[in-house]
Design a protein around this nucleic acid. Structure first.
Length: 478
RNA sequence: GCCCCUUUAGCUCAGUUGGUUAGAGCGACGGACUGUUAAUCCGCAGGUCUCAGGUUCAAGUCCUGAAAGGGGCGCCA
């Protein structure tokens, strides 16, 4: 028996030779043509069988979804629609698939909502196999981008005792018996008896740990799961998501923006170069979906046009103060169309304002910088005016905030002052403050929400469709 | 957490002002078919109209509540 060849490779393999392919039946037509997919690429290989040669009992078992092994000869296709096909000598059913109960009937174009409920099987569809191949390519490209630039991949902890990062509600980690936890004399729970002998949570960010590494290795990044127990019910939030957090010593805010823009463009280019077939499919899927919508709600660009547009234009960089001016004088603000009208400097920007800037005013990715200190985290570097901090948010069309970052406050006295103002317990953060005490240098970094990047590149609209097994309030299936 | 929408066959959806026995396409199943491409053709089965109350002579249709799903907002990545 010949060695198995992946379907991805068979289209360029020499013809008139014997091959073995394995995969799953997509369709079976005319008792003669099997479309087989093994997930290595979007395309199916057409297998031609001769019913005289393949027994009736086997033919009966060639159903949609069945696992199958085919041995045969690759030939130039005798029909239209494909360049090559396999004439089968041997067909073996590896795993039967009962068509009566199999929940995926591809010809019905099942809805994304339905497939979300059967996430364990949705990999079997073209859309989800394409999404997860693109997701893989982007994950790989992230490591390649940083490795090629001399960054070191730091594994920040998943379980953390640090409760002071301020990035959101946390999931507690404990081995204590919830029905009968050990108590202190005052009735509070005695975490001294917990596994770590202290109160611990799942991490909401690897940033602080990345800063520790950056202040020795200079250029580092993290790429790991992150957990937020916020009760967020949107198409852009997950309780468990993956985040990329580069942190670079000696970088200022401009360097940080350059790194963010270079990285995003590199990743988009990588996807265009390596996932052309999948992206073309996802583009068509999006076009089909938008046909249902009224003309006004449809995108002006196709998916691939949109991705290329991002590469070709510099991201618009402006300060929060400049953005407020634009918004204050904008037509929707004057006509009272904003749900939250922009009245004065200092207001937090709502997603309607971000959308206006990105989708209406500039019509391209925007980097907003120098926000008021009151609406940003304690670790961001204070500007000279004492009012704003060196923060930056990268806003993408359709996604909103895809990156949030800043130049960090490296001056010990200023950092301590901010922690006091924002009621961050200093005693728990001594390890973090040590970096400012001993050889502190300017540095900057940011966090990229990986799923938000995948959303943008694949053109999907719900973040629950770009992670294999999404976790969100009320749902931890599979 | 707040607001809005949806729920009818395995899937995607029709179902008029409340009025006989609730429909279609696809899928499944049975059959035909040796060049199909979401194959085609013929045939057939498939329903507690999400659930619990209520209004009414009469409810898939109206009202109340619940559940599940979707969307928007907030929190952020």
């Amino acid at each position: 028996m010949s060695k198995r060849i992946k379907i991805k490779d068979i289209f360029s393999a020499p013809v008139n030779q014997a091959y073995t392919i394995m995969g799953w039946v997509r369709t079976f037509r005319n008792n003669q043509f099997i479309s087989v997919n093994d997930g290595s690429c979007l395309a199916n290989i057409q297998v031609v069988i001769n019913s005289d040669q393949i027994g009736e009992d086997v033919i009966k078992r060639i159903t949609s979804g069945a696992g199958i092994s085919i041995q045969g000869t690759l030939i130039e296709s005798q029909g239209k629609g494909q360049t090559v096909e396999i004439v089968a000598d041997r067909v073996e059913i590896l795993g039967d698939c009962d068509a009566e109960t199999y929940p995926i009937q591809l010809k019905n174009r099942p809805s994304l909502e339905y497939l979300r409920e059967i996430a364990h099987l949705r990999f079997r569809t073209n859309a989800f196999s394409a999404i997860f191949r693109v997701r893989h390519a982007l994950a790989f490209a992230i490591h390649k981008f940083f490795n090629d630039r001399g960054f070191f991949y730091i594994h920040s902890p998943i379980i953390t005792a640090s409760d002071a990062e301020g990035a959101g509600e946390m999931f507690q980690v404990t081995t204590l018996d919830l029905n009968n936890p050990p108590r202190n004399e005052d009735g509070s729970i005695n975490y001294k008896e917990d596994f770590f002998e202290k109160h611990t949570n799942l991490t909401v960010s690897g940033q602080l740990e990345a800063e520790l590494a950056a202040l020795a290795l200079s250029e580092v990044y993290t790429f790991g799961p992150t957990f937020r127990a916020e009760n967020s019910n949107t198409t852009r939030h997950l309780a468990e998501f993956w985040m990329i957090e580069p942190e670079v010593a000696f970088n200022d805010l401009d360097d940080n923006m350059d790194l963010a823009e270079d990285m995003l463009k590199y990743l988009i280019q990588y996807a265009l170069d390596h996932c052309a077939e999948d992206l073309a499919f996802l583009e068509q899927r999006l076009l089909d979906e938008e046909k249902q919508k009224p003309q006004a709600d449809r995108s002006e660009m196709t998916l691939i046009e949109k991705l290329k547009f991002c590469l070709e234009h510099p991201f618009e960089r402006l300060t929060y103060t400049e953005a407020i001016d634009i918004l204050k004088n904008s037509t929707p603000n004057k006509k009272g169309k904003f749900q939250y009208p922009i009245k004065a400097w200092g207001a937090d920007l709502q997603s309607e304002h971000e959308r206006y800037l990105v989708e209406k005013h500039f019509k391209k990715p925007v980097i907003l910088t120098n926000y008021p200190k009151e609406i940003k985290a304690f670790y961001m570097r204070m500007d000279e005016d004492g009012k704003t901090v060196r923060a930056m948010d990268v806003l993408f069309p359709g996604i909103g905030e895809i990156i949030g970052g800043s130049q960090r406050e490296e001056r010990l006295d200023k950092l301590m002052q901010r922690m006091e103002e924002m009621h961050i317990p200093k005693d728990e953060m001594s390890w973090f403050l040590d970096t400012r005490k001993y050889g502190s240098v300017p540095h900057a970094g940011f966090g990229l929400g990986f799923e938000r990047l995948v959303l943008f590149v694949t053109g999907m609209t719900n973040i629950r469709d770009v992670i294999p097994f999404p976790r969100f309030p009320g749902s931890a299936e599979f």
